[in-house]
């Protein structure tokens, strides 16, 4: 259980750094760093326009659909991980 305690402590420190960040950046919405890089680009080259390679793509209409797709991504991954760990664990126990 030792490693679990260490990881738990790191998770608590992670939450602490978030609250520190919250206090240090009042009014920040914690937007994506990817988007912040866009601002850096327009600071360096204000005339740059992103070009369109013309691939058909789907853009989520809003934050709700986007969060749905991100949640689906996480859920699918979590199911796969949980399924195989359970499978291995059960197999090990029945083999003993």
């Amino acid at each position: 259980m030792k490693l679990e305690y260490i990881v738990g402590a790191i998770a608590i420190l992670f939450v602490a750094q978030f609250f520190y960040g919250l206090a240090a950046n009042p009014g920040s919405e914690f937007g994506g760093a990817d988007g912040a890089a866009e601002d850096v680009i327009s600071g360096i080259d204000p005339s740059y326009e992103p070009w369109d390679p013309g691939f058909p793509k789907f853009e989520p209409p809003g934050g709700e659909t986007e969060s749905l797709l991100f949640a689906l991504q996480a859920a699918i991954g979590a199911i796969v991980i949980g399924y195989f760990f359970g499978y291995y664990r059960g197999k090990n126990q029945s083999g003993q």
Partner: peptide
């Protein structure tokens, strides 16, 4: 969320 006020 990170201490810098951005998320990644």
């Amino acid at each position: 969320p990170s201490v810098t006020g951005s998320s990644s």
